[in-house]
Design a protein around this nucleic acid. Structure first.
Length: 622
RNA sequence: GCCCGGGUAGCUCAGUCGGCAGAGCAGCUCACUCGUAAUGAGCAGGUCAGGGGUUCGAGUCCCCUCCCGGGCUCCA
């Protein structure tokens, strides 16, 4: 019977010479692609997108189809309904129902290779498809230029034809499970000045159980959502009166960010960085000089007028740090000079992109700028990468990788400088032992950069640190130093932020640890619950002993049942929960629930103190 | 900014066809004194986001504004 529970692996496509092709034209020797592989799922989801397009066309004849690709874990199809009709959630359910019927009908996907003019004829009512055909005809899409004068269409059942490169699953029944998730707006070709389309997004899996597993993973991510933790643990909130993306931290939340900031300061000062402090507001002249007003103005808060001058909130601190460098003539002996500041900066993020603490309009960067000689550059970059690993290691975060982005097509700076800086970055990466990949042409126009991504407890990747070698600002600010041979030389400058932003890093930590943060970050890491009144004096004694050792602790008296108090302590993510009852009063012991939620009973007071005191100490940075 | 959804008690939400404003949790009072995730009873709590309109009558229907959430790189 077991064999029937586990169906044979379904083959949905084939691969020949690295290229995915339809199963129908597969020959012996081609590699088979199964449905439950990453590639197989892409094919299956792409086919699901077609099925959805067909379903929408059936429900609303005359629908204009845009594009419908597979995405990282699903698919979408962009459509324009006749008469500019907007889709609602109820419509989504109808579309899903219709699509499932098409899947059940087990219609074949049939490929037709036709000439451009035949394609135009077949798709004459589809304005977006005709536009794509025009682009193909003009050879604007490199991939298609090679395809020559024919294009491929896919016929799904007898009554639906769509322009598509393919490949597709052989029959619609290969789509084991399909779910539509949301409808949203999208622009034709991603251009916000172009026509507005409606994006119907969903996902598909080879089996219903695989879909369920994915949905429950989504639910887990939602359960861990840091915005929810923020409310339940009274850490922070976003008052409507202040405005989108501008958080207020309550005492327990502010405590946590202070600890993050203190840890950052300690780490940086121990690594030879020097503090600077710069204001939040500046005359526009500074950002003229830096060039930011030219290319970054859209992301800045608009200016305030004062004494006939324009003042701006700073979106970054680098120009001010450059002034701090320039304030004195510098000798090569002073370099490297590493200037560090935890600076809150203000950026105008578009309202739709704001997301809890992960995307805010007031963010605090652990920002530093390193000014150094060319011969120091590689060492400095390696030093930054070492610091990053020590920083994240202190939180138990060790699963991360780097990305080196090189010179883009449009850039400033000399070929030699780009070459030199990029080589130094690659050298530093090699020395760091980090796994990294190169993203050609993805660098900023003024800098090659190294980005660090970390993977959290439920497998999501987050971009955190960024390191850039700036090839523009030292020149714009005419920075110099006196070299050993008594000449004025231009220093290299490195921008770097390790947390990225304190707010965003806190969001990542909250989701990674499901709210149970490392005890050293928490204001009151211990809560003591006496079982009944007769244990209250002992509970108070335990708290007093903890406080003598500098540990924040509080008693919750037995006015409520133990179950209620435990439940609250857990939902508020108190790292250490101590229960004391008659037995403990007699023996001088406690019952301890640890941050990882393991429990031990009858722990002698001193043993508990030793464990807790060690856990609440800020990690060593050496 | 644009598309979709939402805004009702401190929080989470229900409110049917337009006909007296509801529940759970939290808060307060009282009783209960409990060994690892919700004890019971009572009390109090509202400009139904704001403005305008339709109507005998609007939380509910229409319009405008504000705010919140999701989505908007993926290119046949």
């Amino acid at each position: 019977m077991q064999g029937q529970d586990r169906p044979r692996r379904l083959v949905v496509a084939a691969r020949r010479g690295g290229e995915l092709i339809d199963l129908a034209i597969a020959q012996p020797g081609d590699e088979l692609v199964v449905a439950d592989s990453p590639e197989g799922r892409r094919v299956l989801r792409h086919s699901a997108a077609h099925v959805v397009a067909k379903a929408i066309t059936r429900l609303w004849p005359g629908t204009q189809l845009g594009v419908g690709p597979a995405t990282e874990d699903g698919f979408f199809y962009d459509v324009a309904l006749p008469g500019g009709l907007r889709l609602s959630d109820e419509d989504l359910a109808r579309i899903e129902e219709e699509a499932k019927q098409i899947v059940q009908a087990d219609e074949p996907f049939e490929r037709l290779d036709v000439s451009l003019s035949e394609a135009r004829e077949l798709l004459r009512d589809q304005v977006f498809k005709r536009e794509i055909l025009d682009r193909i005809a003009r050879g604007e899409d490199e991939l298609d230029a090679a395809a020559g004068a024919t294009v491929s269409l896919y016929r799904t059942g007898g009554d639906f034809v769509d322009l598509c490169r393919g490949p597709h699953v052989p029959r619609t029944s290969s789509i084991g499970a399909l779910r539509l998730l949301r409808v949203s707006g999208a622009y034709w070709r991603g251009d916000e000045h172009g026509p507005q389309l409606q994006r119907v997004a969903g996902t598909a899996f080879e089996t219903e159980s695989a879909l369920e597993a994915w949905l429950s993973q989504l639910a887990e991510a939602e359960r861990r959502d840091h915005r929810r933790r923020g409310v339940e643990q009274r850490l922070f909130f976003f008052p409507g009166e202040i405005g989108g993306g501008l958080p207020v931290f309550e005492p327990d939340g502010a405590w946590i960010r202070y600890r993050l900031e203190d840890f950052s300061r300690r780490l940086h000062f121990s690594a030879g960085y020097l503090p600077v402090w710069t204001p939040h507001v500046t005359r526009g002249a500074l950002f003229e000089l830096s060039g930011h007003l030219g290319w970054y103005r859209e992301s800045m808060y608009p200016p305030m007028e004062l004494d006939g001058q324009e003042y701006f909130l700073k979106p970054m601190s680098c120009p001010m740090h450059l002034l701090a460098y320039r304030q004195h003539p510098r000798s090569y002996r002073e370099l490297p000079l590493r200037l560090f500041e935890l600076a809150t900066v203000y950026r105008y993020e578009r309202s739709g992109t704001l997301h809890g603490l992960a995307r805010v309009r007031a963010l605090t960067q652990d920002d530093a700028h390193i000014f150094c000689r060319p011969d120091q550059l590689a060492d400095e970059l390696a030093g930054v990468l070492d610091l990053v690993q020590r920083l994240f290691g202190a939180f138990g975060l060790e699963d991360f990788d780097a990305e080196l982005s090189t010179r883009p097509a449009k850039s400033v700076g000399s070929d030699e400088d780009w070459e030199f800086a990029t080589t130094a970055a690659r050298d530093a990466l090699e020395r760091s032992g980090l796994t990294y990949r190169v993203a050609p042409g993805e660098g900023a126009f003024y800098a090659p950069k190294i980005d660090l991504h970390l993977r959290d407890a439920i497998g999501r990747r987050w971009q955190v640190s960024t390191v850039q070698v700036d090839l523009q600002l030292p020149q714009r600010f005419e920075l110099t130093y006196q070299s050993a041979s008594n000449r004025l030389e231009r220093p290299f400058m490195v921008h770097r932020a390790l947390y990225g932003s304190v707010e965003r890093f806190l969001a990542i930590l909250l989701e990674h640890f499901d709210g149970v943060l490392p005890p050293w970050m928490v204001r009151t890491p211990v809560r003591v619950l006496p079982v009944a009144h007769d244990a209250t004096p002992w509970a108070q004694g335990v708290v007093a002993a903890l406080e003598r050792r500098g540990v924040g602790a509080a008693v919750v008296p037995p006015d409520e049942t133990l179950g209620v108090r435990l439940r609250r302590a857990r939902s508020e993510r108190v790292p250490f929960i101590i229960v004391v009852g008659g037995r403990d009063v007699e023996a001088g012991t406690v019952g301890l629930t640890r941050p990882d939620r393991t429990q031990v009973r009858d722990v002698p007071l001193d043993a508990m103190l030793e464990e807790v005191v060690a856990a609440v100490a800020m990690p060593e940075v050496g």
